[in-house]
Design a protein around this nucleic acid. Sequence first.
DNA 1: ATGGCTACGATCCGTAGA
Length: 254
Amino acid sequence: MKLATWNVNSLKVRLPHLLDWLAAAKPDVICLQELKLEDAKFPRAEIEAAGYRAAHLGQKTYNGVAILSRLEIAEVATGIPGFADEQKRVIAATLGGARIVCVYCPNGQAVGSEKYEYTLRWFAALREYVAAELSRHPSLALLGDFNVAPEDRDVHDPKAWEGQVHVSEPERTAWRALLELGLKDRFRLFEQPEKSYSWWDYRMMGFRRNAGLRIDQILLSAPLAARCTASTIDKEPRKLERPSDHTPVVCELS
DNA sequence: ATGGCTACGATCCGTAGA
């Protein structure tokens, strides 16, 4: 089984890239973030024609998440139970014997800001939610845009970023708290190219300079982590005309 | 140099992303 996650930064604009990538990479499951469209405008027909079922939670202009799957989708759940939130950031579903949780974690904007406090509250709620899901579904994958670069080697210029959002210690602690539930970021258990990132700023030729962050991840519970044979970042879509600022992260399970 | 792109929904600029 091949799992992927991709922040498409507008599904409307990126649909051709997505369809091309699905045809080329053939993932069994892909989690999408930043759809930036309402459910009524979800391109269901195109996705189905590509051979995928979809569960989606859309929102106009901002946020929005979806799970696309070649396998049958069951037990779809949206949001974080008990955490009232207008922002559409979480969708979960059961497929292929695994619980798939797709997340678009908040951008804290600036350390100490209201959005930063919201981000930390949101992560605390996510942790409780994932803990509960794990108790019911031992085989669980948490995929998405976490907006956290877990370590300095996930940052192109750690000095320049020191103390900023995406790398601040409270955010990294919140990210590690997810691992404490028993999840593993398999990316680091395989040989990886130096300076591997999943996001590059549109400005200042960020991609050409490889000035990026590894903020998109796939976290696996023990039964799935044991089946993981490869974890990669596919930079090809970031090279296309009018790309998303993120690129797909992929995980292969035996 | 605190900006620099890009998407969106509203205009002919503001908000947000990261």
